[in-house]
Design a protein around this nucleic acid. Structure first.
Lengths: 221, 221
DNA sequence: GGAAAGATGTCAATCGATTGATTGACATCA
DNA sequence: TGATGTCAATCAATCGATTGACATCTTTCC
């Protein structure tokens, strides 16, 4: 689509190559990290030539930047949807706020483990947490911070801790961490001895974590 | 020290170079990752020549292997000490098992945030979680699994969930995740707006998380 | 006691391989 | 005919590894 909003059919093939590059770059960058992925590997995975990377994205860094922008936007809406849906369901059923936390955590865990794409996005995010690149600010301000602030509000509403307090932030950050932990590949599976997640496993994990925090967030008597 | 237990004073200088390489390699590999660190950078940081890496460790991979072995051994004893100390203190005071979980978490968070070295080790471990190398098995079997199993026992003793059950493993894994989350640099600090951890912050984080899981692990009425 | 021989460790220089980026020819379609 | 993409070929730069000279220290031997 050009600057006038018209679709240029000439670019259909180019757009397809661009999309394949983005999809494969997300997968490879998430699994191996920015430095460990070569341009030749990216091009081969996308079924094109290395020159395409420079043509469509200006180079390897430009491609990574586009991937991060896509991840930030997708995760931001994924988080937002989870909180909004939980709020709507909880309000419709007249539940107390603590049930909303229950719902949010279960939704996030399920959403992040649902598809390979979302798992890769979560993995890329974890990677940026550990090795921030120039793109980290985008990811943090656009996706992570809003999610943390939502958790912070949730902790305030349930545990009665002021949103700006350290105690509140510790719990909010812990919830975010727990929601992300199970989407990472391999490690929890190895601990359980399983070889993969079945749909009922995802449900069970969501319920277990939700039950855990449901009790953990209740204000002390 | 040779095979007879005698200290060879000739190797004192060589040993010092070896130690500096190991220390700097831990720091750099933890911060930037295996692929992103060059042999020239490693040698310069340790104040020696790149040939030293091949001489002492057989190459970059050999050096990384030694670093991982050191991290595995150190973290294993760090974990073990935390559980043992918590058990001893808890038994001496005649506390219920759930207080032991309280103590373990607080000790682990404090220990992992105590020094740069322990933070780097924790960071390297997180990195291996995301991008397992050939050394991951060492790290997992020697340090991570024993710690997870301890948590599993703790969850069984407190929440009454069988150690092999999925619910138990989910909670045990969550506890491990939470204990590690705050030792990672930068991200939680950014969320709180702080610029660094003060000793009282570490205490406060440990107490907050411990209080959270203290309630979360109690069996439902 | 002291020089030769051997082991240990460091160094600058260099190796082939691989990296990301670039080029100019060529294909496709408006 | 010009714009959009793709391709094989090639670029300089950097990678990890290696080499052989050299310094240092220990052991051996007379």
């Amino acid at each position: 689509m050009d600057e006038n909003g018209k679709i240029d059919t000439r670019t259909a093939k180019g757009q397809a190559t661009r999309d394949r590059l983005l999809a494969e770059a997300l997968r490879l960058f998430a699994i191996k990290g920015f430095e460990a992925v070569g341009t030749r590997e990216l091009a081969a995975a996308a079924g094109t030539n290395i020159a395409s990377i420079a043509f469509h994205f200006g180079g390897k860094e430009g491609l990574y930047g586009e991937v991060v922008r896509h991840v930030a936007a997708t995760l931001a809406s994924l988080y937002q949807n989870a909180f909004a849906a939980a709020q709507a369901e909880s309000r419709a059923k007249g539940e107390e706020p603590i049930r909303r936390a229950h719902r949010v955590i279960a939704k996030l865990i399920a959403a992040l483990a649902a598809s390979n794409r979302s798992r890769w996005m979560s993995l890329l995010l974890q990677r940026e947490f550990i090795t921030p690149t120039a793109c980290f600010d985008t990811l943090y301000e656009e996706a992570i911070r809003p999610c943390l602030e939502e958790f912070s509000q949730l902790v305030e509403a349930t545990a009665g801790l002021a949103a700006e307090s350290l105690d509140n932030r510790v719990l909010a950050y812990s919830l975010f961490t727990m929601a992300s932990a199970f989407s990472r590949n391999g490690n929890f599976l190895r601990f359980t001895g399983k070889t993969g997640y079945a749909p009922q496993d995802i449900d069970a994990i969501g319920r277990a974590v939700a039950g855990f925090i449901d009790k953990g967030l209740r204000p002390s008597a």
